Simulated assay, not measured.
Amino acid sequence: MSNPPSTRGLLIALVAAGTLSAPGLPMAADPAAGAAAWIQEHPASDGTDQRSCATCHGTDLTQPGRHAKTGKAIDPMAPSVNPQRLTDEKKIAKWLLRNCRWTLGRECTETEKADFIAYIETQ
């Protein structure tokens, strides 16, 4: 069984896939910034509630989450307990796009994406 790629390796793969544009790699990813952004709340598009990444994924990434709208179970985000996390660049790109739009109401910046990946990787 191979080890999952490092944050730098994931960032390079995401740049290669066109998901991130980061001239002058290596991009500095900040897990602390990712952790802070994870719990930062944003107004829902309908204005009825606040959302954060933790709304669905929780604050303990070693535990399963639950989608706030659908109730669907979400496997733990932490690669330490879910080795499938952060191994497929296409899935990473897909879910970052979808979840950033749903939670933040916009696409994440390259820096935000890198910070989220770095944070998740530390769990």
Rank of each mutant, 00 (worst) to 15 (best):
P76E: 09
D46L: 04
H42Q: 04
D60F: 04
H42A: 04
G65C: 02
L10K: 01
E41P: 15
T62I: 01
K72F: 07
G9R: 06
V15I: 12
T111R: 14
S80G: 11
L86E: 04
P83L: 05
P31T: 07
W102K: 15
R66T: 15
P43R: 12
A73D: 12
N3F: 05
D88H: 10
T55A: 09
S52G: 03
W102Q: 05
R85M: 12
Q50P: 03
C53M: 12
R106K: 14
V81Y: 11
M27A: 10
D30L: 02
E107D: 13
S2R: 13
P79C: 06
K113N: 15
A17S: 12
M27Q: 13
Y119A: 01
A32Q: 12
D75L: 12
A44F: 00
D75F: 02
L14H: 13
E112Q: 07
K69F: 13
D30R: 08
G9H: 04
L25Q: 13
P31S: 04
Q84F: 15
G24M: 04
K69D: 14
C108R: 01
Q50N: 08
E89H: 11
A32C: 02
C100G: 14
T19R: 08
D75V: 04
P64E: 15
T122E: 08
D30M: 04
A16P: 06
S6E: 03
D75Q: 15
A28S: 07
K90G: 06
Q123T: 14
R51H: 07
W95L: 04
I120L: 14
C53A: 05
K91N: 14
E107K: 11
C108K: 02
A54N: 05
A16L: 09
G58Q: 04
M27F: 15
D49F: 15
A28F: 14
A35W: 10
Q123S: 12
P76L: 00
G34Q: 05
S21C: 06
D88E: 05
P76D: 02
T109K: 01
A68T: 02
I120P: 09
H67L: 11
E89D: 08
D115H: 06
T87K: 05
M1R: 14
F116K: 02
G47D: 09
I117N: 02
E41C: 10
L20W: 09
T55F: 03
Q40E: 05
T19F: 08
D49W: 15
I39S: 14
R85L: 07
